[in-house]
């Protein structure tokens, strides 16, 4: 039997150590992704064998009114929650970066909501949005607003209510901004001070360019996250009223597990992936104009 070279033995040992991960990726990620691509060209009710139908699912999507409604709702949600969420998170991070008393307490308070499970926070916000007994409307009434909005039952207010709620769990984003802010070289601020820059100018000309890679990272994560939002509307509004909060992932889920149209759901998932890819690519393309990396 020929002796294996030391290099081969090392390679095999390495592969043996890697094998749990490799098997995991293959079985739980690569194969399902491949299968979902195949199923997207099939009629597949999950409990019966798939039948190949070519581009039918994608063609159906074009004429599917509910597909467009859910896509429109999702883009609207992303458009409302992402920029506002990023601005609020950055503002909070700037405040938490200041040298004030009780800083750790404030940081804990801001971060704490992001540790609460999504289902629990959705249940909590259901109560907050109750038009009679909810904290928000009680506060609004005490401020003199006689008819505060019926948050979750109105087609006009249900989506803004979900967006507003999304700001509650910005803790993770704030922490990432905070880490970026603490990496901004102090010399740049000292130089800005010498040039007589005031606080807004320092933020605009020093802080934002310095943390632009962090902003970019949060933007990419935000795009992906907001296009995949599911739990909150699923629990709080079930997509209603009149599908005004029916998001893309909810339609995908309903098709897969309620309507038993796994083939169509797979096609929806691939369109979602392409959408996320396109938006991420767009963000990467624009990044050359506004993201500055140190040392470049």
């Amino acid at each position: 039997m020929p002796r294996m070279s030391r290099h081969t033995i090392n390679f095999l040992k390495g592969m043996a150590f890697l094998s749990p991960w490799l098997v995991g990726v293959l079985v739980f990620t690569t194969i399902p992704i491949g299968l979902s691509l195949y199923y997207s060209f099939c009629n597949y009710p999950l409990v019966q064998p798939p039948v190949f139908v070519g581009w039918h699912n994608y063609h159906y999507m074009i004429h599917d009114r509910v597909f467009w409604i859910s896509l429109n709702n999702t883009l609207l949600y992303a458009l409302m929650s992402l920029p506002m969420g990023m601005v609020i998170a950055l503002a909070l991070a700037l405040l938490l970066n200041a040298n004030i008393r009780g800083l750790s307490l404030y940081r804990t308070i801001i971060f704490l909501p992001s540790l609460i499970p999504l289902v629990a926070s959705a249940m909590l916000w259901l109560w907050m949005y109750n038009s009679k007994l909810g904290l928000i409307n009680i506060t609004l009434r005490s401020l003199g607003i006689a008819h505060p909005p019926p948050w979750l039952t109105s087609t006009h207010w249900a989506m803004p209510a979900l967006v507003l709620m999304s700001f509650w769990s910005l803790g993770n984003t704030v922490v990432i901004y905070l880490a970026g802010l603490q990496d901004v070289p102090r010399e740049l601020y000292e130089a800005a001070d010498l040039d007589g820059a005031n606080l807004p100018r320092k933020i605009w000309h020093v802080t934002l360019p310095s943390i632009s890679p962090v902003i970019f990272f949060n933007l990419i994560m935000g795009i992906i996250g907001s296009l995949q939002t599911f739990t909150q509307p699923f629990i709080m509004t079930q997509g209603g009223p009149i599908r005004s909060t029916y998001l893309y992932t909810m339609y995908l889920y309903d098709n897969a597990f309620t309507f038993l149209r796994m083939g169509y759901a797979s096609a929806l998932a691939w369109v979602q992936l392409l959408l996320v890819l396109a938006l991420t690519a767009l963000a990467f393309w624009t990044s050359r104009y506004w993201v500055h990396y140190q040392g470049r």
């Binding site: 007994l133 979750l152 039952t153 109105s154």
Partner: peptide
């Protein structure tokens, strides 16, 4: 519809 919305939203 506004009043109905409000009423529904206030249900426990």
């Amino acid at each position: 519809p506004q009043a109905i919305n409000s009423f529904q939203s206030g249900e426990g």
